[in-house]
Computed example of a mutant assay.
Amino acid sequence: MRRYFLFYMKRLFLRLLLVAVIFTIAAAGAFAWWANRPLALTASPIEVVIKPNSSVASVGRQIQRGGVRMDPRLFALLVRLTGHGADLKAGGYEFDSSATPLSVIGKIARGEVNHYVLTVIEGWEFRKMRAAVDAHPALKHDSRGLSDVELMKAIGAPEPAPEGLFFPDTYLFARGSSDLELYKHAYRAMQRRLTDAWNARAPDLPYKSPYEALIMASIVEKETGQPAERPLIAAVFVNRLRKGMMLQTDPTVIYGMGEAFEGNIRKRDLQSDTPYNTYTRNGLPPTPIALPGLASLAAATAPAPSDALYFVARGDGSSHFSNSLPEHNRAVDKYQRGK
């Protein structure tokens, strides 16, 4: 009986093993068939932008969002099986109706870009954008050696100070394109976004011009811990302007310090007057202090309905908003001083 049982179990194991082998071969065959099968596209040809420093999973999602009907999970699996996990390159890629998963991966791994990309981050100061442009190897650097004022003239912008006037976004360009064309594109993009926000602004805002709204948007961009709080932060500063109160916002002080800022703001920094020190001067600073994104433009021109005049960081990325100084002082004691 025991011998029969062992014989039976052995046969069962072999059958299960055979089924597993057949299943594995079938799955591998199906996967290989899929990897070499033309993909469905929402249009043909189609251009997909892969952003810099994207993970394999993120690249798969960007391809899918760009109009290539491919499961990002299968894409990630195929990338790892082909050993291209560390080879995927940023850029703009064009695919037509003959594209297969394998050819898509190969094209991105080889960097066969139709366009190159440069991503300008929300909240960057212009000097950081300029450093990124200067460092891009695919651009023709016609702005090299120009001062900021000369650069603005070269792109036909009437403003002498560039801060805040370039829209943070991902920009595509062909190899050898002039960096001045990229600056023009980013400048015009900000003008369009600012005009749209200004035309949709709330009534009775304390701004004399769209440029002042842009200054406020840059402050909101630098003060924001939680994206959802942008309209409330804008409301605090708008309420302060209406009441003639000083804005008293650290990011403007830091901007005014320039390269003298060493990472920590001190009491004497708040007391040292510069055109950007909103602890020593009323009203808005003379220029923006960063490149604001679309959400900050919207918040500056349509603040939340709130009477708040103060806010303090809770320490978890969010802020506590107060309508009065005593309430604010209690919040400072609780969240900053640990009382």
Score class of each variant (00 low, 15 high):
residue 187 Y to Q: 13
residue 152 M to E: 04
residue 149 V to K: 14
residue 179 D to E: 01
residue 214 L to Q: 03
residue 144 R to Y: 04
residue 202 A to P: 11
residue 209 S to V: 00
residue 235 A to N: 12
residue 170 T to I: 08
residue 179 D to V: 00
residue 161 A to N: 15
residue 221 E to I: 09
residue 182 L to G: 07
residue 203 P to M: 11
residue 169 D to V: 02
residue 229 E to G: 08
residue 219 I to H: 01
residue 170 T to N: 01
residue 220 V to Q: 08
residue 210 P to T: 07
residue 212 E to F: 05
residue 170 T to L: 03
residue 173 F to R: 02
residue 161 A to P: 00
residue 194 L to S: 07
residue 142 D to Y: 01
residue 195 T to Q: 14
residue 165 L to V: 09
residue 181 E to M: 09
residue 227 P to A: 13
residue 221 E to D: 11
residue 216 M to Y: 12
residue 163 E to Y: 01
residue 228 A to H: 13
residue 187 Y to I: 10
residue 155 I to V: 07
residue 157 A to T: 10
residue 220 V to T: 04
residue 138 A to Y: 10
residue 223 E to Q: 12
residue 224 T to L: 00
residue 197 A to W: 06
residue 138 A to L: 11
residue 226 Q to M: 15
residue 188 R to M: 12
residue 192 R to I: 13
residue 232 L to G: 07
residue 188 R to Q: 14
residue 182 L to I: 06
residue 194 L to R: 04
residue 198 W to E: 02
residue 220 V to A: 03
residue 217 A to K: 05
residue 161 A to G: 07
residue 199 N to P: 05
residue 183 Y to R: 01
residue 187 Y to N: 11
residue 161 A to W: 15
residue 156 G to T: 08
residue 137 P to W: 02
residue 168 P to I: 03
residue 141 H to W: 03
residue 151 L to T: 15
residue 181 E to T: 08
residue 176 G to P: 04
residue 192 R to N: 11
residue 197 A to S: 13
residue 168 P to W: 08
residue 198 W to I: 06
residue 166 F to I: 14
residue 216 M to Q: 09
residue 225 G to H: 13
residue 169 D to K: 00
residue 216 M to D: 09
residue 144 R to C: 00
residue 181 E to P: 05
residue 173 F to T: 07
residue 190 M to D: 13
residue 207 Y to Q: 04
residue 229 E to A: 04
residue 180 L to D: 03
residue 158 P to R: 14
residue 170 T to S: 03
residue 153 K to W: 00
residue 192 R to F: 10
residue 170 T to E: 01
residue 141 H to M: 08
residue 210 P to I: 00
residue 230 R to Y: 14
residue 160 P to F: 07
residue 156 G to V: 04
residue 199 N to T: 14
residue 148 D to V: 11
residue 206 P to W: 05
residue 204 D to Y: 09
residue 183 Y to P: 00
residue 180 L to R: 01
residue 178 S to N: 01
residue 142 D to F: 04
